[in-house]
Amino acid sequence: MSIRLDTIGKSFGGFTALGDINLEIEPGEFLALLGPSGSGKTTLLRIVAGLEFPDHGRVFYDGEDITDLKVADRGVGFVFQHYALFRHMTVADNVAFGLTIRKRRDRPAKAEIRDRVQKLLDLVQLGQLGNRYPAQLSGGQRQRVALARALAIEPRLLLLDEPFGALDARVRKDLRRWLRELHDRMGLTSIFVTHDQDEALELADRVVVMDHGVIEQVATPQQIYDEPASAFVFDFVGESNQVPVTVDGDRVIAFDRLLDVPPATLAGMGGAARLFFRPHDAEIVGEGANGLAATVTLVRPNSGSMRVEGKLEGSDRLVEIDVAQGAAPGQGERIFVRPTRAKLYAGTAG
């Protein structure tokens, strides 16, 4: 199912939760809404679901305007962060709920409901646990029940609000991979909200990065990581170093020292700016070369290479770079760091 959001806006009291959001989602897409808390991502998801109504703007499903349609009539699957299972019902009754409440005319026969519930429970690998109550399940199992319950009504659109937020890291990773498979196998269109960038980058076809109620960037995970559209995205997604600099023509000055940066970085820049680079996009150069001067404060192993942390001379800022295992400097040593790949954004450092 394709979805189109047309200038969606929403405020609570005086607080603008969403300002004029435009977004198109392709059928079969797995989309992540990524942002810090308060960025409006959950509000946007709830508006798509019909759990919240926008102050202005329209929502289209497959080109049809369903903005005023209530959630009960939209037939979308929604998975809540804290599962929201019905505690007084067995797992099987939870999953069957969406079917048993239908009007008699649309309701499948009892035996058919039982079959479908069993199939769904098998699908989420909980085939034996239909008679349990939610309180008797682990967090990961509960979330799978919630998913099975949402899928029971055969939605074409699956919406997930921080679906793995309350789970521990190990379970989260397994469930993530499994959800991606499920999405592909069932031909769903899915949107999920997360504040975890790893989750967004690993799972999604496209990532929508949000901050303060506006969309900062919509792109594939690769593009988001390699070509962040704004300082916020660079900072929020992946690890990064941020250095306040002054751009004067084709010279970049950082803390009273000249700094060599890749030439492409400079395009259209002048005056105060912020230089961003990733820890693995930097090298240690000799004193003669133009690099950031820093004193090493910490050296530690970091998956295959060494992570070097240093304090920049002339400020309290820290810089982090990755170097090859044999090439790490000692603690307290003075080093010079030059980014090999970087991005400049206008404005002063936040």
Partner: peptide
């Protein structure tokens, strides 16, 4: 919790 009511509504109740 509100969640539970919303869950029921999203399932068509």
């Amino acid at each position: 919790s509100r969640d539970v009511e919303e869950a029921a509504a999203s399932l068509g109740a």
